[in-house]
Simulated scan of single mutants.
Amino acid sequence: MLRLESLTKRFGAKAAVDNVSIEVSKPMMIGIIGRSGAGKSTLLRVLNRLAEATEGTAEFEGRDILGLRGREMRAWQSDCAMIFQQFNLVPRMDVVSNVLHGTLARRSTLATVMNLYPQSDIHMAIDILDRLGIAEQAPKRAEALSGGQQQRVAIARALMQDPKIILADEPIASLDPMNAQVVMESLRRIHDEDGRMVICNLHTLDTARRYCDRVIGMRDGRVVFDGTPEQLTTGVARDIYGADASFSEAATSTEIETLNAPQAVPVTA
């Protein structure tokens, strides 16, 4: 389905994504882990065409996604929905209207300016919110919701695009453990029930192991690990994060049970 070959993105002399080759043959939930600056976000932005690759190729279902322009590129961005760490909602707009923004790519300019939506789209938006457990928030302003609720609104907006791939860039980085768990369970359920590919940038090992079918580790723009959650040992994690022997997984945890346990030695990376 998805094939990246020697994909590279440079900013000046620095390669933020450096010669990355990945092949995904079927819909999976994939976690990309690594410390800040490893190239995780840049990789997703290149896939979504929010940033242009410097070298290499990227194909989805045999289509060259890096060569798309104009309408074809916008259609790809509908097929490849993006969820951001900071939600990117319109704070003073009601929740259901934020979700309906997921249809903008297929609406006319006049309909967009007049803020006109078909009843079928409105019903679909509410159904998606209900699926994510927040239908009762539909008439409220987005700014009135908690962080976890806002992220679920962002997921609902992505689902309104009916995408083939969902790219989630640090979707739980600014959330407390309880809300982080709800958001990750929502993304996992979307993969399981809809058969959509989900690629999720994460900071925490326990989250990657619990929710993902495959884990990719990046360091300095390169892929240094690509395997199953079971293969993600503490030793492998040290290499991904560039940490020494004092590395502690507990210090990177978002699991409530782990956080309630006695504190371990903090991460030095």
Results as ranks from 00 to 15, higher is better:
L50F: 09
D194C: 10
G242S: 06
P266M: 10
R238T: 01
R214Q: 09
P27L: 12
F87Y: 07
V95Q: 07
R107E: 08
T268P: 15
S120M: 11
V90I: 09
Q77D: 03
S253Q: 08
S108E: 01
Q181K: 13
T54E: 02
R106Y: 02
R219A: 01
I33G: 07
A111S: 13
A168F: 08
A168Y: 05
M28K: 14
V267M: 12
V95E: 06
M28T: 01
V223Y: 00
E5K: 13
V183D: 10
L66G: 04
T103P: 04
M73K: 15
A269K: 00
D130A: 13
R63M: 14
W76K: 12
N48Y: 07
G235M: 08
A158W: 09
A58F: 03
L104N: 05
P91D: 09
L43E: 02
G227F: 01
R92H: 11
P171Y: 07
D130V: 06
V17T: 02
S253W: 08
R141C: 11
T42F: 01
P266A: 10
L2Y: 08
L68P: 00
S36P: 07
H123E: 12
L116W: 09
G70L: 12
A269L: 05
S97T: 15
D176C: 07
P27V: 11
D192S: 10
D162I: 00
R45P: 06
S6G: 12
G133M: 08
C212D: 02
E59L: 13
A154E: 05
P27M: 12
L116Q: 13
F84R: 13
I166W: 04
R3M: 14
M218D: 03
T57F: 06
G235T: 01
A208V: 02
P171S: 06
V223D: 03
L66E: 05
E136M: 12
G34L: 04
D18I: 04
L110Q: 15
E136D: 15
M124R: 10
A168H: 02
D206F: 03
R3T: 06
A13K: 11
D130L: 10
T228C: 14
L50Q: 10
M184E: 07
V17N: 05
D127E: 15
P266L: 14
Q137M: 15
D226Y: 07
E72R: 15
L159P: 00
L129V: 00
K40E: 03
L202V: 03
D220Q: 13
R209F: 00
A51L: 12
P91N: 08
V20Q: 02
S41F: 05
L47W: 07
